[in-house]
């Protein structure tokens, strides 16, 4: 699989939730098409009800698409064998609360048909990786704090050393230190050549770790592209230099004025992901059906 090869391909994916009588209730996802490439960290963003969790659950086969096609690691979403190379961290850690950390990882290891020695070795390694305190490892999960549950959730998602990791709100419930650890872990997974798909409401986290993002609103894809490109202010020029003296700054301003430039400020542009996110949501509310930019191209 080459670097640019798609690990996940979604084509015209739609999902309609129906009531007991089969009548359409909510259109959660509408004709979504996107590719996620090998080795990238991809962020799926959107307000509540935008369809990002639905997308993830469709990818995992927990929901069935109303229309469209999904290919993950070259297989259909309904094909169970695809799960051998996938790790999944649910939004809340839906783990068995009567098991302790070792039993939890041992259980999930068995589901991957791993041998006893493999399971033991991998469990120790992962519990160290997620920094779960040794004295907590023999306690049942029902005694864990939310942060500890999140850590064991991450460990179970990585038990099989997956090629594709799907993280639903990976930093929720974590303290700032845990948050940093999680982001480091995601970046570390990227370094190992793994593909990461994550959903998050914490935009700063997404900005820190994601290569590309997609913003969904009302079940539709509104924006998709590289984070650095999407955040770039297109009608401004930023000049980065080492520290200049006041005289030098004045000279630079003169030169710029001579070339007709309106110098706004000599500083970095202030655009960030949160601004973009809110702008996209606002536009979507005001102009339903409007699409701003997809992969750097304008679309109506």
């Amino acid at each position: 699989m080459s670097q640019s090869e798609a690990v996940i391909e979604i084509r015209n994916l739609s999902k309609v939730y129906r009531d007991f009588w089969g009548r359409p209730k909510v259109k959660a996802l509408n004709a979504l098409s996107l590719d996620i490439r090998k080795g990238e960290v991809f962020g799926l963003l959107g307000p509540n009800g935008s369809g990002k969790t639905t997308t993830m659950k469709l990818l995992l086969g927990l929901l069935f698409p109303t229309e469209g096609e999904i290919t993950i690691l070259g297989k259909s979403a309904a094909d169970v064998s695809k799960n051998e190379r996938i790790g999944y961290l649910p939004e809340e850690s839906y783990l068995y609360r009567f098991l302790n950390a070792y039993e939890t990882l041992d259980f999930y290891g068995r589901l991957f048909d791993m041998s006893a020695a493999e399971r033991k070795e991998r469990s120790e390694k992962l519990l160290d990786l997620v920094k779960l305190a040794p004295q907590a490892r023999r306690r049942q999960l029902k005694e864990y704090s939310k942060g500890m549950t999140r850590r064991i959730g991450v460990a179970q998602a990585l038990i099989n050393d997956p090629d594709l990791v799907m993280l639903d709100e990976p930093t929720s419930g974590l303290d700032p230190l845990g948050n940093r650890d999680m982001k480091d872990l995601i970046l570390d997974l990227k370094k190992q050549g793994k593909t990461v798909l994550m959903c998050s409401h914490l935009l700063a986290d997404v900005q820190d770790v994601c290569d590309r993002i997609a913003i969904l609103y009302g079940g539709e894809l509104k924006v998709m592209g590289r984070v650095d490109e999407l955040l770039k202010a297109q009608d401004e020029t930023q000049i980065l230099s080492s520290k200049l003296s006041d005289a030098a700054v004045k000279d630079v301003q003169e030169v710029l004025k001579k070339h007709g430039a309106n110098v706004l400020k000599i500083d970095h542009p202030t655009a960030n992901l949160e601004d973009l996110f809110l702008k996209t949501v606002q536009e979507s509310r005001e102009r339903p059906g409007h699409r701003t930019v997809i992969e750097g191209k304008s679309a109506s």
Binding site: G61, V80, S81, E84, Y88, P90, E92, Y94, F112, D113
Partner: peptide
């Protein structure tokens, strides 16, 4: 109900 099954069916368990 508790969605624990999500962590099983997203593994290679048939």
């Amino acid at each position: 109900r508790l969605r624990s099954i999500h962590t099983i069916v997203t593994k290679p368990a048939r």
